[in-house]
């Protein structure tokens, strides 16, 4: 028996959230952890998943998989579950992973849960904790079927390095033409930036920054902290920042170690996207801004004054 993990590749690297998925699969103690990677990626990068508990990687090198087609990925993983005699598939929630997981669950008649935040309790059945109501609550869900598919939220398990040997095996599989039912004609990605959903530190700005021309002082702080940058919804609605930076109920949900909100009032819809952050810092000139109620540390002051000082203090502390 083995546990299958789909590891996602981005910019030639295995996503950090996928390493968490490998660690999660290892923590299940339900058999050998077999990772599956699709598309072009260096063997050395692939074998790094061994450090997180996988003992084998199946690698499908077909270049047609470099552009992810959800239906194709779902078929490959379904076949891999059969070939590896795996009852459980684990992967990270993402724009690719989550729909792939849902399809595999249907193809294999598996119980499926997304947004999983913790390793299961198996004392009585197989029960996982998942996030609901956009981070405002949790539910405990029992997976009834023998086959199980889990899509994990960031931080569901810690990607701790352990030692272990690993083999990378080419996985020969014939792809079904009919599965290529969508065609990606262009991909536009902000390269070099820290991906917001995976960032350990996020610095976000709101309407308090007054205009896109003032984002430099926020980016300076983000750079000093190796942080990703986010924004409130009106900021992306106004076109000050790209849409994929919009954090909140209707945008990206982040789960960093540290979230720094500058000039954001803290509307409940914004909080819904940040409530999984470990530590929240709020900088706002209005002492009554609702965000302070959800924060761990706060500074009442003008962003234009505080941000450069904070950046300098961070640099001085390195």
């Amino acid at each position: 028996m083995s546990v299958l993990v789909f590891v996602e590749v981005g910019e030639g690297k295995i996503r950090k959230t996928s390493l968490e998925a490998v660690a999660y699969a290892n923590a299940l103690e339900a058999g050998e952890v077999v990772a599956v990677a699709l598309g072009s990626i260096e063997a050395a990068e692939l074998s790094s998943v061994g450090k997180y508990g996988a003992t084998k990687v199946l690698h499908v090198t077909d270049a047609r998989l470099d552009k992810p087609v959800i239906q194709v990925y779902a078929s490959v993983l379904t076949k891999a579950m059969q070939d590896e005699n795996a009852d459980i598939l684990v992967l990270a929630n993402s724009s690719l992973g989550t729909p792939v997981a849902a399809k595999v669950a249907i193809k294999t008649n598996a119980s499926f849960v997304s947004n999983v935040v913790d390793v299961p309790n198996t004392a009585n059945g197989f029960v996982v904790k998942r996030s609901i109501y956009t981070g405002k609550a949790f539910s405990f869900v029992e997976l009834k079927n023998q086959k199980k598919v889990l899509a994990l939220k960031k931080n569901a398990a810690e990607a701790k390095e352990i030692s272990g040997a690993i083999t990378v095996t080419p996985y020969a599989i014939s792809l079904n033409e009919a599965d290529f039912n969508t065609t990606t004609t262009a991909i536009e990605k902000a390269t070099g930036d820290i991906l917001l959903p995976e960032a350990e530190i996020v610095v976000s700005g709101g309407r308090g920054l007054k205009g896109p021309e003032h984002w430099g002082i926020l980016e300076d702080l983000a750079k000093a902290l190796h942080a990703g940058t986010g924004c409130s919804k009106p900021v992306s609605d106004l076109g000050w920042r790209p849409h994929h930076e919009h954090v909140g109920q209707t945008g990206v949900k982040v789960a960093p170690q540290l979230y720094i909100a500058v000039g954001i009032s803290g509307a409940i819809q914004h909080l819904a996207g940040v409530n999984s952050s470990k530590v929240i810092v709020v900088i706002n000139k209005d002492a009554d801004a609702p965000f302070f109620k959800a924060a761990d540390y706060g500074i009442v002051g003008d962003a234009f004054d505080i941000l450069p000082k904070l950046t300098a203090a961070v640099k001085a502390s390195h």
Partner: peptide
């Protein structure tokens, strides 16, 4: 039925904020 919700839970309450002078 492939999954069954057993119960719900609220996140733990947030601790007090620490204010720092500008």
């Amino acid at each position: 039925k492939t999954v069954v919700v057993q119960k719900f839970e609220l996140p733990p309450a947030k601790g007090a904020i620490r204010m720092i002078s500008a």
